[in-house]
Design a protein around this nucleic acid. Structure first.
Lengths: 143, 143
DNA sequence: GTGTTTGCAAAGTGTTTGCAATTTA
DNA sequence: TAAATTGCAAACACTTTGCAAACAC
């Protein structure tokens, strides 16, 4: 009972998304939404759930991440061919990605100015625009 | 002998990259670089090679794509969590991506204006900046 | 000849799926 | 109780790897 507000909030959140607030989904929502914006992989979240003494199967974590994404609670970010990242920030924004460490960092939309966009190919319309700035450990500031 | 120039060119290209111009690598280079900019997946390229009566194993296609990428002959584009795309255009540019059809299209760097970029996180430096514009089949121009 | 490259088939990774048991409403 | 959800384990797609045979120089 030490965080009734967040708990209640998450129940609302799930209900609003049309998802039954099950023990597993609530626990995952807790991990995802309790502390601000996060970027997680399925494995990561699964690990955290187990640490938090919430036994959830990896399959359920995957299912839940996808359900959350479909409901607009999460956004999927594709930066690595191998892993999928899920971002709790669903608004328009961009990312720094450090392949070294597998770390994603948000860049608020306002920090990048995009001029006019080119017209999309015939018969299509723009769905989203994302800027990915790949960074690497700086060897040294100077030689 | 119907395209000695391209053939020779590709031999040079491979040698310059420090790769032995083997039958397989030459054939793949032919498919990749003969007709302007391309975006291919390993499976696609493998299929094309077989069609062109050049028996290459999928493993070799993967190896070759990676060797080409390491040598700077190709660039890898990450837009889908499942597949890897390889782009023969290694210069700075951006992409339209139609998830529907799995189609990637180049956007010349000049067609997108990026204002000042935010400072990269402490201890890192910017490696690349890419804009991905996701598009979808337009339902209709108007309702 | 000698070292590189190929190709097969097996192994690996992250992810998805089928289905019985469990849980929610 | 009916319908949704879970979890296991098996199945999956894509990719990588080990090693003997084939090839390039």
């Amino acid at each position: 009972m030490d965080r009734p507000r967040t708990h209640t909030h998450n129940i609302e959140r799930l209900k609003a998304a049309g998802l039954r607030p099950t023990r597993q989904r609530l626990a995952l929502a807790q991990l995802l939404f309790a502390n601000g914006d996060r970027h997680v992989t399925a494995e990561q979240l699964h690990g955290e759930a187990l640490e938090a003494k919430v036994p959830v199967s990896l399959a359920t974590v995957y299912n839940t991440l996808h359900q959350f994404t479909e409901s607009g609670l999460l956004r999927e970010v594709v930066v690595e061919a191998s892993r999928s990242y899920f971002d709790t920030n669903t608004g328009t924004h961009h990312h720094f990605f450090a392949a070294d460490s597998g770390t994603l960092m948000d860049i608020p939309a306002g920090e990048i100015t995009l001029g006019d966009l080119p017209l999309p190919p015939e018969g299509t319309r723009i769905d989203s625009v994302e800027v990915i700035i790949r960074v690497r450990r700086a060897p040294q500031t100077a030689g």
